[in-house]
Simulated scan of single mutants.
Amino acid sequence: MSFKSICVYGAGALGGAIAAKLAAAGNGVTISAVARGAHLKSIRENGLKLYEAGAEKPIKVEITATDDPYSLPKQDLIITGLKGHQLGDAAEGIAALLKDGTRVMMILNGIPWWYFHRDSQSPHAELQFEELDPAGRLWRLIGPERVIGCVAMQGAEVVNPGEIQLSNNGRYILGEPSGEMSDDLEGIKALLTAAGLNVSMTPRIRDEIWNKLTGNAAFNPLSALTRALMTDIMADPALYDMVGKIMNEVRAVGTALGAKFSITIEERLEQSRHIGAVRTSMLQDLLAGKALEIVPLSGMVVALGRLASVPTPVSETVLALVSQLDIENRRGA
């Protein structure tokens, strides 16, 4: 279908960056955004500013922004920028924007709620996890058949309300849960590419989910527990060793569920040395007093490890620690 109306639902760091790029490109597409708080207020009053990596001047766009999705018309395409633990509460709002044929491109870290929909890599097709989708609201109100999976290799941060900074020239990998190379997939890729994003497609989106989770499950919780930047974690011998152990556990669980990995753990560690002095998204949320994205990352490594009879002792320890940190941090906030 032709995607002429697009809502970015959750226009924070990454979602806001995509909204800004799409709006700046024009291409006859109407862009709206769902945001909240001071960020929403600034977008409404001053527009949305995006500083790309290395740029001195921002892209600035004016877009329709609201905290009330029911005030928007039905959409051809919804792009979610929410984290996994935020999606359940947004299910009704997202569903209000759906019409026949609407696709929902979900940018998620870790294991997504739709992971086992039409999964042919493991014997667990259509398995649902309550911890990823409480009361099955996402499965029931949105439907996994609408989903386009998206793995984003893009560092982004809201540096001020209405202002987003990208830390790298990222890339986005899209895939249907079924593995089909559909017309919708082609259309969304063309749309995002025309907006200046580096986009590719794959028939094996779950492989890409596990490849990214290899890093996220290690660096995100460790950065929150230590408040360390990526460079600091990689420079500390004990933390470096722990990163490697978590990565090996993630790979073992993913492999047991049929995932294929494109590089070795040693190569992944070497890549991580060059990411720079970056604050992970979990560290950003910790410092802002927000709930942490624990379940789709560490939580599901442990849960799926049990499902596949793969031991994950280091991940279990990290999960216990970061879960309590989350409770105490929000209590303090």
Rank of each mutant, 00 (worst) to 15 (best):
S2M: 08
Y9M: 03
A20R: 07
L22H: 14
A24H: 15
A25H: 13
G26F: 12
S32L: 04
V34S: 04
V34P: 06
G37P: 05
H39N: 08
R44A: 04
K49E: 09
L50I: 06
A55G: 00
A55W: 10
P58F: 05
I59H: 08
I59R: 09
T66C: 02
P69F: 09
Y70V: 04
P73F: 03
L82M: 14
L82D: 14
L82S: 09
K83H: 06
L87F: 08
A90S: 05
A91I: 05
G93Y: 11
G93V: 06
I94N: 02
A96R: 00
L97K: 08
L97T: 05
L98F: 07
D100G: 10
T102D: 12
I107M: 14
L108M: 14
I111P: 01
W114V: 01
Y115G: 00
Y115L: 05
S122W: 06
H124K: 00
Q128Y: 02
Q128G: 01
E131S: 12
L132W: 13
P134L: 07
W139C: 02
L141M: 14
R146H: 09
V147R: 06
I148V: 15
G149W: 11
C150G: 06
Q154P: 03
Q165G: 01
L166A: 03
N169M: 03
R171A: 08
L174D: 13
E180K: 12
M181A: 14
L185T: 14
L185R: 14
L185G: 08
E186C: 04
K189E: 15
K189D: 11
K189P: 00
L192H: 03
A194F: 02
N198S: 14
N198I: 08
V199P: 04
R204P: 00
N211C: 06
A217K: 06
A218H: 09
P221A: 02
S223D: 10
T226N: 06
L229E: 10
L229S: 15
L229Y: 13
M230I: 14
T231D: 15
A235P: 04
A235K: 13
A235T: 11
A235V: 13
L239Q: 15
M242H: 01
M242S: 10
I246W: 03
E249I: 01
R251N: 07
T255M: 03
T255S: 15
T255V: 03
T255N: 04
A256P: 05
G258I: 09
A259D: 12
A259C: 11
F261Q: 13
I263V: 13
I265W: 12
L269S: 09
A277E: 15
V278R: 15
R279G: 00
T280P: 02
T280V: 02
L283Q: 07
D285T: 02
L287C: 11
A288Q: 13
A288Y: 03
A288F: 05
L292A: 06
V295L: 04
P296Q: 10
L297Y: 11
G299F: 08
V301L: 10
V302Y: 03
V302R: 02
L304R: 05
G305T: 13
L307H: 04
A308M: 12
S309K: 14
V314L: 08
E316K: 01
V318A: 01
A320T: 15
Q324P: 00
E328A: 00
R330H: 07
R331A: 12
R331I: 04
A333V: 01
A333D: 10
